[in-house]
Simulated scan of single mutants.
Amino acid sequence: MSILNLLPLFLLVFVRLTCFFVTAPLWMERKIPASFKWGGAFFISLLVVGLIQPEQKIEMDSVFILLVLKEVLVGLCLGFFTNLLLYAVQLAGSFIDLQSGFAMATMFNPQTGIQENLTGRFFYIVAMLFFLSIDGHHILIKGVLASYNWIPIDAWLPLGVSENFVQLSLMIVRDMFWIAILIASPIVGTLFLVDIALGILAKTVPQMNLFVVGIPIKMVAHFIVLFIFMPVFLTVMEKLVQTMIHSFEQMLQILGA
Rank of each mutant, 00 (worst) to 15 (best):
Y148S: 09
L17N: 07
V220C: 15
P152Q: 11
I254D: 02
I52G: 02
A146V: 12
F192A: 15
I125S: 10
I172T: 03
G50W: 09
Y87R: 10
F10P: 09
M28T: 02
M104C: 08
Q253V: 13
L66A: 04
I224A: 11
A24I: 03
L182G: 04
L118N: 02
W178F: 11
V48P: 04
S169N: 09
W156N: 15
V205H: 06
R16Y: 05
M1S: 09
M107N: 12
L193T: 00
E71T: 02
M171E: 14
L98G: 11
L66W: 02
H246S: 12
S162L: 11
P25R: 09
L84M: 14
L129F: 11
M219G: 11
M176W: 03
K57A: 12
I44N: 06
F108E: 15
F223A: 15
V144R: 06
L67V: 01
Q207G: 08
A146R: 15
I141T: 15
P54K: 02
N209H: 12
Q115S: 12
L47F: 14
I172P: 01
H138N: 14
L193I: 11
P216G: 09
V144L: 13
F95I: 06
M208T: 15
S62C: 08
E59P: 00
L84C: 04
M104E: 13
I151Q: 01
M251L: 14
P186Q: 01
Q90R: 08
V236K: 13
F80S: 09
L252Y: 00
M28P: 00
K218L: 08
D97L: 07
N109A: 14
A202F: 01
A92C: 05
P33W: 06
K31N: 12
I224K: 04
I65Y: 04
A34C: 07
N164W: 00
Q53K: 11
D61V: 06
Q167T: 13
K37G: 03
L67D: 06
A221K: 04
W178Y: 08
I196Y: 00
A221H: 04
G160A: 13
L157Q: 10
L182C: 09
F122H: 05
V144Q: 05
I52L: 14
I32G: 06
V232K: 10
I196D: 01
W150H: 14
V48H: 00
Q90E: 15
T119N: 10
I224V: 15
D154L: 05
F130S: 13
V144C: 04
V173P: 01
A103V: 13
C77H: 04
G136M: 09
N209T: 10
Q250H: 04
G40W: 10
I224H: 02
L17D: 02
V63W: 03
A257S: 14
L76C: 08
L159C: 08
V49N: 02
L234I: 13
K57V: 08
L69Q: 03
